[in-house]
Amino acid sequence: MYNKFSEKLLGELHARLESLSLVELSPVPLLKAQVSAVADALKDLTDFLAAHPPLDKQEEIGYYKFTYPRFKSLIVYYTEYHYLLVGVPESGLKAKKKYYLSRLSAIAAFFEQHTLHYDYFRLDGGMLDELFYSAVDAGNVLQPIVLGYGPFLGTAMSELVSWFMALERLRNDILRLLHGLSGPGPMSATVVDPTGTLQREFKWTGEDIHLIELVHGIHLTGQVNNGSIGIVELFKVVGTFFGVNLRVPKRGFDDLKARKTMSKTAFLDMMRSAVLKKMDEDDAYDPEKARRRNGF
């Protein structure tokens, strides 16, 4: 009974919120308008509930478990998002990153504080639904204690679920903001991608002169862009990728030529030896491999 009405109401609410985002309003008036729009929808929803009481316990549970939090979470989200933006440092990339990371830590701490109820929410549990999503035992020790934004029109658990939904959405926003600060970034830097995943770090841990030798070899044999890329640009790209300052290409080449105690192409020689050794090892007779290959 509630699904059709709530879906229509939620669609109208999202349309109203979308229209507000297109209007040039300062942060506080925008927040007031957003909260007012959600509060109006919540009133319509609860008026409908009063006029059409749940037919049975399962319908009541469904309302407080799924329907109500979808609306109430929007009040929590828009309010918390407003406070997030208000607190962003005005300048300093490092300060902004530190701020966003602190907010992520605060969200994680909230989820940890409510571990039992958050796990129940995430796992979509059902065994305690009657306790959490009906008025059967509001004083039970398992009931959560909720402090937040009014109006409180649901059960304690449905109010807490609204927070879970809002903070998960806010967490994704913060991760996107962090990614925006990091940009695509060099692969030698650990950055947050749009999904919140830390990109794997790639760092050149060998000697810088070896990388210089490798880049010169790549350039002189025309392996990139059919040889059309300049040596300075290639040095910059490879150096950025591995997080190494390769300096001026000519100076690096002079360092290669100035080697006294080893081959002028020591790293390329080392690579050649390593590849040949690997080939020899693979070609060496292995009775066990031969047995598996021949099937006996």
Rank of each mutant, 00 (worst) to 15 (best):
L30H: 11
F202A: 13
L25S: 09
V38M: 14
A15S: 14
E213N: 05
M271G: 00
G139I: 00
A108R: 14
L22M: 14
V248F: 00
V88F: 07
G239I: 04
V28Y: 15
G243A: 02
A266D: 06
G196E: 15
E59H: 09
L142K: 12
A33R: 09
G183F: 14
K4I: 12
I174Q: 04
V192T: 15
N294M: 06
D173R: 15
T46P: 02
T265H: 05
S21E: 15
S19A: 15
D255V: 03
G252N: 02
N172R: 10
Y63D: 07
G148T: 09
L84F: 10
G295I: 01
V248Q: 08
I212N: 06
D129Q: 09
G295A: 01
R272W: 00
M279H: 12
K94Y: 03
V237E: 01
G11T: 05
P53F: 12
L17K: 07
Y133E: 06
Y99N: 10
L147R: 02
L198K: 11
L167I: 08
L30E: 14
K289H: 04
F235G: 00
M1G: 10
T155R: 04
K98P: 02
E130G: 03
T115E: 12
S26I: 02
L234N: 04
Y120H: 02
M157T: 04
G125C: 03
M157R: 13
E168V: 05
N140A: 10
L74D: 05
F66V: 15
G243S: 06
D173T: 15
V136C: 02
T155I: 08
G11D: 07
S6Q: 12
S182Q: 09
A138R: 04
S36V: 08
K97T: 12
L74Y: 06
Q199A: 12
P249C: 03
L167F: 10
Y63M: 10
Y77G: 01
R122T: 13
L93K: 08
E159W: 07
L276R: 06
A290R: 03
F132H: 06
V141K: 12
L101Y: 11
E7K: 15
H216N: 06
I231S: 03
G183M: 12
L276W: 00
K4A: 13
E207H: 13
E233G: 02
